[in-house]
Design a protein around this nucleic acid. Structure first.
Lengths: 179, 179
DNA sequence: CGATACATGTAAAGTGTTACATGATTTA
DNA sequence: TAAATCATGTAACACTTTACATGTATCG
């Protein structure tokens, strides 16, 4: 079972969705910590249906294909619950900005300073977006650990903490590289 | 030009290395923010040599192949310097633990609490390792922004900040899921 | 004498991205 | 009427992982 499969099971955990809606979730909010392309999602949904993890209602769609609303089967729900409490397998972190930093000495100093200033700005913008989402979530009561949307709220908290860390680190580098 | 190529250029920025030594660096310290398998590295080094980004001295090796010590060419160094100050392309973050968190409501509550407790412990261990490395680095004077090893030191700082963020987030989740 | 480190490579399978293809309905 | 949204799919290519393959030198 690939992680993509589990990501799709996660996407469907709170209720049925069409493939198209799953693609949307893979941008926001799930795209903040997992992504998959449309061209990966549709064939995988078909294979998961074959394997009995999900099933769907089909209805005439706008284009040449049926519109399918997918939902977890009992088998899918069981498999998801089993996987969730398993320790995640450490996958290679790949961060281009940190990679660039390792070879910092081989670059133009002022150019690198400008780079970190720009990245600090981008991460600050993302942080502001998350902060606004957090305020909305708390207004809805999503921060209740017993509520059904606490999981999404907790991921937001991680996003906020990670962006703050990036902003601080970039700012520190700007100050270190300053004259 | 794939990012793998730039990662290899970064690895060689401070001096010549054999393929085998590059593989070691891809575990520690570069592996903390970038990885590649041996089977990816050797063919890519060959292609980069063909393209004039690197060259090497060859000497009889222990096995059936020559031992090659790779170094950047002038063209490679120029290309690296150009790339370094370019804004990194945002690649999809993929974090299995955060993905699991999104679907937290579909799992056993105590099981999830145990998961976050275990992950907090693992990240704390990694943090302690980084902290020890930081002390060594500072004793060597690597924290001098004008020194040649400041880049590696700065990546360590990011690692420390990121691990601390993870530990805090896991601890927060344990407390939220507690009775 | 068995395991580990040194040292380089190839083959096959799996995963992910980009591009293509169709076509109705709604919005500017 | 042009663009965006809804909706599903395939093909080709690129990238990554796992496994295989060879062989010396050193350490316990």
């Amino acid at each position: 079972m690939s992680t993509l499969r589990y990501a799709l099971l996660c996407t469907l955990h709170a209720g049925p969705l069409t493939g198209y809606e799953i693609v949307q979730r893979m941008r926001r909010p799930i795209g903040y910590y997992w992504t998959a392309q449309q061209s990966q999602i549709y064939p995988e949904l078909a294979r998961m249906t074959e394997d009995g993890l999900i099933d769907h209602d089909a209805a005439a769609g706008p284009g040449p294909h049926d519109r399918k609303t997918h939902r977890l089967t009992e088998a899918g729900r069981t498999e998801l619950a089993r996987w969730l409490t398993e320790p995640p397998q450490r996958r290679p972190p790949k961060d281009e900005l940190v990679l660039k930093t390792y070879a910092l000495a081989a670059a133009d100093r002022d150019g690198m300073r400008a780079l970190y200033r720009g990245e600090a700005r981008k991460h600050q913008a993302q942080l502001d977006d998350y902060l606004a989402q957090q305020a909305d979530a708390e207004a809805r009561g999503d921060d209740d650990p017993a509520g059904p949307r606490f999981g999404a709220y907790a991921t937001l908290r991680m996003g906020i903490a990670a962006e703050r860390t990036m902003v601080d680190w970039c700012d520190w580098l700007v100050s270190q590289l300053g004259r």
